[in-house]
Amino acid sequence: MKNSIKSIVLLVTISFLTLSFTNLKTETKSVIVENSTVVWKGYKVTGSHEGTIVLKSGSLEFDGEILTGGEFVIDMTTISSTDLEGEYKGKLDGHLKSDDFFGTESYPEASLKFNSVTPKGKNSYTVVGDLTIKGKTNPIEFEISIYGSKATASLKIDRSKYGVKYNSASFFENLKDKVIYDEFDIITDLEF
């Protein structure tokens, strides 16, 4: 009986001390989508194209001042080029939304969920997460920097992992100057 009481007292004491020294300041901060930008840049043998995509929703999780997580949804139906005008812009935008590229009618959203966040410096972190495009999910690693209520990140994405095959040398031979490189960039400026 004495040992049972001692065990209970010890368990209560350990639990109390653990809770006393555990930081319970975890906070989820919503990204202000109207004040945030997502820019893409794709490359081909003969040049490049760039544009924007609208962030549908997003949040970052913090433990005090330290980033610990995040989750984002992108509205793929808003993919748009910014380096072309008129008819050429319309053709490229339509082609990017077609099944040749992102198939936005069937896959209107892409998502990113942070799995782990490792501090790299004062304001910098290495993130490992799951990126889903066209219903396919693959791991991705990238850097994110936090400054006050703003965050910036740059991601390099291999489109071939998501079934985006159009003019990819990974899937087709003899494309010559028609090759569109598999990797494209996403640059984000977020406000929360």
Results as ranks from 00 to 15, higher is better:
Ser15Tyr: 01
Leu17Phe: 01
Thr18Ser: 14
Leu19Ser: 13
Thr22Phe: 08
Thr26Phe: 08
Thr26Asp: 10
Glu27Ile: 02
Thr28Arg: 07
Lys29Met: 04
Val31Glu: 03
Val31Tyr: 03
Ile32Asn: 15
Glu34Tyr: 08
Asn35Trp: 05
Asn35Arg: 11
Thr37Val: 14
Val38Pro: 00
Val39Ala: 13
Val39Met: 15
Trp40His: 00
Trp40Tyr: 02
Lys41Arg: 05
Tyr43Gly: 04
Val45Phe: 00
Thr46Pro: 07
Thr46Ala: 08
Gly47Val: 15
His49Gln: 10
Gly51Cys: 07
Thr52Tyr: 00
Thr52Pro: 00
Ile53Leu: 15
Ser57Thr: 15
Leu60Gln: 10
Glu61Val: 04
Phe62Asp: 13
Phe62Ala: 01
Asp63Gln: 15
Asp63Phe: 05
Gly64Tyr: 14
Glu65Gln: 14
Leu67Phe: 10
Leu67Gln: 09
Leu67Asp: 05
Leu67Lys: 10
Thr68Asn: 07
Thr68Cys: 04
Gly69Lys: 02
Gly70Asp: 11
Gly70Tyr: 08
Glu71Tyr: 08
Glu71Pro: 01
Glu71Arg: 10
Glu71Thr: 12
Phe72Pro: 00
Met76His: 05
Met76Gly: 02
Thr77His: 05
Thr77Ser: 02
Ile79Gly: 05
Ile79Met: 10
Ile79Trp: 01
Ile79Asn: 03
Ser80Phe: 08
Ser80Tyr: 07
Ser81Ala: 15
Ser81Leu: 09
Thr82Ser: 06
Asp83Tyr: 08
Glu85Met: 05
Gly86Ala: 07
Gly86Glu: 09
Tyr88Arg: 04
Lys89Asp: 11
Lys89Ile: 00
Gly90His: 03
Lys91Thr: 09
Lys91Phe: 15
Lys91Met: 09
Gly94Cys: 07
Leu96Asp: 09
Lys97Trp: 09
Ser98Lys: 01
Asp99Met: 02
Asp100Phe: 00
Phe101Val: 08
Phe102Met: 02
Phe102Asp: 02
Gly103Thr: 06
Gly103Asn: 14
Gly103Cys: 06
Thr104Cys: 03
Ser106His: 13
Tyr107Met: 12
Pro108Val: 08
Glu109Gln: 13
Ala110Gly: 09
Lys113Ile: 05
Lys113Asn: 01
Lys113Gln: 05
Phe114Thr: 02
Asn115Gly: 14
Ser116Leu: 00
Val117Arg: 03
Thr118Trp: 11
Lys120Tyr: 03
Gly121Gln: 08
Asn123Ser: 13
Asn123Trp: 02
Asn123Asp: 00
Asn123Gln: 09
Tyr125Gln: 07
Thr126Ala: 12
Thr126Lys: 12
Val127Ala: 05
Val127Pro: 00
Val128Trp: 09
Gly129Cys: 01
Gly129Phe: 11
Asp130Gly: 00
Leu131Lys: 12
Leu131Phe: 07
Thr132Asn: 11
Thr132Gly: 00
Ile133Asn: 01
Thr137His: 09
Pro139Ser: 11
Pro139Asp: 15
Ile140Asp: 13
Ile140Ala: 11
Phe142Ser: 10
Phe142Thr: 09
Ile146Arg: 12
Tyr147Lys: 14
